[in-house]
């Protein structure tokens, strides 16, 4: 998710900004790794039904690719809409 969604740091003293910024970086790393795990789980669950072979067949692979691409596009769109709503709701500090 976009860093700007996590808050406005402009009003803080520099050393607090640095600390907050580090915290946000840590959260973003954790979040992107979780997103990766969640994406794998979802596309695997939706696309892989048969366990008669130990390798993905072509159809499953295509399904996984499309699932992942769709999810990423979806996630991007949600991020944009979310940011708009967030801005509308934001009160000046």
């Amino acid at each position: 998710m976009d860093k700007s969604m996590l808050g406005d740091l402009g009003s803080l003293p520099p050393e607090d900004q640095a600390r907050m910024s580090k915290m946000i970086d840590q959260l973003q790393i954790r979040d992107s790794l979780r997103m990766y795990n969640a994406l794998v789980e979802r596309c695997f669950s939706d696309c892989v039904e048969s366990f008669r072979r130990k390798t993905l067949d072509e159809q499953e692979e295509t399904c996984v690719r499309r699932c992942a691409e769709k999810f990423l596009k979806h996630s991007l769109r949600v991020g944009l809409r979310f940011a708009e709503l967030n801005q509308g709701a934001a009160t000046p500090d």
Binding site: C43, F51, K54, T55, V64, A68
Partner: peptide
């Protein structure tokens, strides 16, 4: 189970490449 682990692993790699 064995095949499921193997396929899950492949999906992890496949999506890792896409990302």
């Amino acid at each position: 189970i064995d095949r499921c682990v193997s396929k899950y692993w492949q999906v992890t790699n496949l999506i890792g490449q896409l990302l």
